[in-house]
Write a protein that binds this DNA or RNA. Structure first.
Lengths: 223, 223
DNA sequence: TCAAAAGTGTTCACCGTACACCCATGT
DNA sequence: ACATGGGTGTACGGTGAACACTTTTGA
């Protein structure tokens, strides 16, 4: 068959200590007034990855995207009541220190408390959150959430927001150092008004996705 | 745009102690004489999952499939030289004790040593192998490779074939029992001509995918 | 009685968590 | 001095791998 195909993106960023997703408000039917993921029709001569990058460029500066990966393809014939549409969803991440300029109809919403969502977009956001959560635990994907340099307190707050549970800065430091994900910059941040020891600044060693804890079980014999 | 969309499947089975993939030989151009993954065009009123099930039914009895999950969608405009075609790939698994009847043009090939493959199908097979390998380590996906009942020797041979490295039966038993993936049936298999203690028979407790080793790291605090 | 295969016990290294304690800084 | 937040040391529980040892069978 010939079907309409669109690319969508779950763009996530930590904002104000909370995991947020980029949504735009539909002004026209179907699903008028509901919130939707950015994206749109695939063109004849582009790949899905190129398509979602092109379409995101209308919402945010694509250079702000620290990571982009394919999530899944939705194909329920009823997912769009108007016409048959397949959608391939991507997960995009924006580092915490950036505040991209977005159009008037577009904004950031807490991923844990979504507004009324169009089509099956709410469940796609949940897929994106699950993917982020999983990959934070066995890859260096934290690089895509964190600013270029950060203290361990800041980083643990970002992990807390993304994972939805408390993450102790002291142990996070040891785990990520042992895995070689992060390193000290040598610089530090002066303590605030209330005193306290100055915090050391860290950076991620890589800005590409790497698996740092592959096959914790059923791993190959050392011999 | 309107584009052709097809569903493909990487159907894997352990055969003769080797991980094999189901392929059919193309009789017509493009890629005449090369081997391809089963699948084909998506119809107007079916989902991708329904489509791949329908099309696999022409190759194997779909009831033989113990597991089916979506892998990824390929969209390179050049992947099919004839016409623009998107393909959503699935991973299918067949338990080891079954020998499905397949058409004349279709057969099982070692996944580690593929024949000349059409389009991008070779790299899709590699994706399927990676997915299987990963999920064996943190889910109960072994249920989809193993027959209903098995000895630990047999099961470890299947894991060895799927993972590509040695897996000690003695430790596999402990790991899978501790995780609650398998249980003893109470029955056992008489030893062969060369003697040896009879082997106990086990079964998987579930036949649905379950994550049994979620978040080995960065897990929530117990408090 | 011996070989073969299954199963058990034990040791070891490693990892992540928890938590007590020490360090550096501002007031 | 003392409060505050960062950083270190350490102990604990859990896990998987390795391997020696025991059990159960056939010849």
């Amino acid at each position: 068959m010939l079907s309409a195909h669109e690319a969508l993106a779950v763009v996530l960023q930590i904002r104000g200590g909370e995991l947020c997703v980029l949504l735009w408000r539909r002004a026209l039917p179907p699903c008028e007034g509901e919130w939707a993921l950015p994206g749109g029709r695939l063109r004849a001569d582009e790949s899905l990855g190129a398509s979602i990058r092109r379409q995101l460029a209308q919402k945010v500066d694509v250079r702000d995207l620290s990571h982009l990966e394919q999530l899944e393809t939705r194909s329920d014939p009823e997912r769009d009541p108007q016409r048959r549409t397949l959608a391939t969803a991507y997960l995009g991440l924006v580092p915490a220190h950036i505040d991209p300029v977005v159009p008037d109809d577009t904004g950031w919403h807490p991923a844990a408390d979504l507004p009324p969502m169009a089509f099956d977009h709410a469940s796609i956001v949940r897929s994106g959150r699950r993917r982020l959560r999983s990959k934070l635990s066995y890859t260096n994907l934290g690089f895509a959430l964190a600013p270029p340099e950060f203290t361990m307190s800041e980083l643990s707050a970002h992990y807390r927001a993304a994972l939805g549970h408390d993450v102790a800065a002291t142990n996070l430091r040891r785990v990520l150092l042992r895995r070689g994900q992060i390193e000290e910059t040598g610089r530090s941040v002066p303590s605030g008004r209330s005193g306290g020891r100055p915090a050391a600044l860290f950076r991620f060693r890589a800005r590409e996705l790497e698996v740092t804890d592959a096959f914790a079980v059923l791993r190959p014999p050392v011999g």
